[in-house]
Design a protein around this nucleic acid. Structure first.
Length: 476
RNA sequence: GCCCCCGUCGUCUAGCCAGGCCUAGGACACCGGCCUUUCACGCCGGCGACACGGGUUCGAAUCCCGUCGGGGGCACCA
């Protein structure tokens, strides 16, 4: 049984990079009929906040990532919040003490900093010297008498090369001398990430650890801990990270990078899911617009491209537009779009929103585009922003007048009526093309571009159309 | 500085492991055309890459070595 986990630390909104990690874990789990565990890594009390946890969960659900066990739903291996697992960690720290894998280190941060600088100056890798590694009982007593606090360090076997097979990177070899004896328990008694992550993954029977490439160099430390505790070492897969336009790790500097921000801008979760999956992974067929189910079906973790990927906003926008105009049915789209209409102060009933969307959906990339594309359906006191000359010219005015006269006494006006009427005006006044339509367009919308006029008129109806024309006729 | 990972169009990538089918395929973006009252959509076309240098080989994007470049990591953060 495949078991994977997504283990974010609740320090802010769900970041795109984390979202993608969660996504790949989910896809991998589902592809293999396995389980996904949501664990919260809140051992860093400084930065972790409970409300972030709820946001994280909310964003994950919105994205379409579903887990089988976790903080909010419990499970066989609860608790799933690290801050609630301290007793468990103590137990395993105790084991490491018994087996002699860890030892007390009394060095102060200042001393360590000193060593570090010295090492750097001598161009040696800045790692712990192992000074307290073989302290005698007496020396220890003495240091403790001085009132020194201590941390527990892991006794790293000198010179060993840790070799593991990464599902994405292939064989990775790292010599442990790179890092030296590392801290397992802080001076305040709290265990450190590299330790708890191993305990949790092992106890939760995680079979595949799929995470960001930034964890690659931590992996040997963790393997050492697995071995020391006689735990089975899981398989690892390190995802290449996501880069910003400038090719550095995607961060807040690159603008909106939380999935929340994309959601607020009017990206659809399906497009987000699809787009994130396409960062580093590619379907065998060339069709890139794929549903969650299709992605899950086709996904192979070995197929993940192993070079870091620059996040492509333009492509995500395009993908989103495909979902808006082709993938969602009108009712579904309407439901999702309503909050956006309201946000922009465009009020109407469900049916009206639906009609508007039917005619503008082809021009939307994100739901926020509703602001610009839908205003002619809602705003009556618009100003003439461009094309003033079309309504000021003699023929322009005449076109508008005739148009007004011809619809004044009608019951209503639909798209076909509009075409008939403009055809009549064309014959009567001998104007066509731009000179025929622009005056009407500018009069009705205040702009020289936008929706098809026959559709606009049909949707807003006769009354509004007349009112708008009257207003313009009075101005010019 | 040291270690690790990586290097195909501007971007995401296919191809690389099992060398010839690659005058390197697709998608986004961009440019041009068509459709059209405008915008958008759609359709057609164009531009555009194997980082560089050595090998190995009849033949290399594919294998080997080096260089350069990019990224990540080197915490009592996760």
């Amino acid at each position: 049984m495949v078991r994977v986990r997504f283990a974010p630390s609740p320090t802010g909104y769900l970041h795109l990079g984390n979202a993608r990690t969660a996504l790949f874990n989910y896809i991998f789990a589902k592809h293999n009929n396995g389980k996904l565990v949501l664990r919260i890594e809140d051992t860093d009390r400084e930065r972790s906040k409970k409300e972030y946890e709820d946001m994280l969960i909310d964003d994950l659900k919105w994205l379409g990532v579903e887990w089988d066990e976790g903080v909010d739903k419990g499970g066989e291996f609860a608790p799933y919040r690290q801050s609630e697992r301290t007793e468990i960690y103590k137990e395993y720290i105790e084991k490491l003490k018994q087996s002699g894998h860890i030892y007390k280190c009394y060095c102060t941060p200042e001393e360590l900093e000193e060593e570090r600088k010295k090492a750097l100056a001598e161009k040696r890798p800045p790692r712990y010297s192992g000074k307290c590694r073989n302290l005698t009982e007496e020396e220890r007593k003495k240091l403790e008498a001085e009132g020194r606090s201590y941390v527990w360090r892991f006794r790293v076997p000198d010179g060993e090369t840790i070799i593991f097979e990464d599902l994405i990177k292939g064989i990775v070899e790292i010599n442990v001398n790179e890092f030296g004896d590392f801290v397992i328990v802080r001076s305040d008694g709290s265990p450190v990430y590299n330790f708890v992550v191993v305990i949790d993954d092992a106890l939760m029977k995680i079979t595949h650890v799929i995470r960001g490439e930034d964890h690659l160099s931590n992996t040997p430390k963790q393997i050492l801990i697995y071995r020391a505790l006689n735990f089975e070492v899981p398989k690892f897969a390190h995802l290449p990270i996501i880069l910003g336009e400038d090719k550095s790790k995607l961060s807040k500097r690159h603008g909106a990078v939380s999935v929340r921000a994309f959601r607020d801008e009017g990206y659809l979760s399906e497009a987000m899911f699809n787009g994130l999956a396409l960062l580093g992974w590619h379907p065998k067929e060339d069709n890139e617009v794929l549903s969650k189910e299709e992605i899950i079906k086709e996904f192979k973790i070995e197929d993940i491209h192993n070079a870091p990927a620059v996040f492509d906003r333009a492509k995500l926008r395009w993908l989103n537009s495909v979902y808006i105009r082709e993938k969602l049915d009108l009712d579904d789209l309407t439901k999702r779009a309503i909050p956006f209409f309201k946000k922009f102060g465009y009020f109407g009933d469900y049916e009206y929103y639906k009609k508007v969307l039917d005619v503008i959906r082809d021009s939307l990339e994100v739901l926020n585009d509703i602001k610009d594309r839908a205003y002619p359906f809602f705003i009556e006191d618009y100003s003439i922003e461009e094309g003033l000359e079309f309504i000021q010219s003699e023929t322009g005015k005449e076109v508008i007048k005739r148009f007004y006269e011809k619809i004044k006494d009608r019951e209503n006006i639909d798209r076909n009526d509009f075409k008939k009427i403009t055809k009549e005006i064309q014959k009567e006044l001998k104007v066509k093309g731009k000179n025929l339509f622009m005056p009407i367009r500018v009069a009705l919308t205040g702009k020289t571009s936008g929706v098809d006029l026959s559709l606009l008129v049909e949707v807003i109806g006769k009354e509004k159309t007349l009112k708008r024309l009257e207003r313009i006729l009075n101005i010019v």
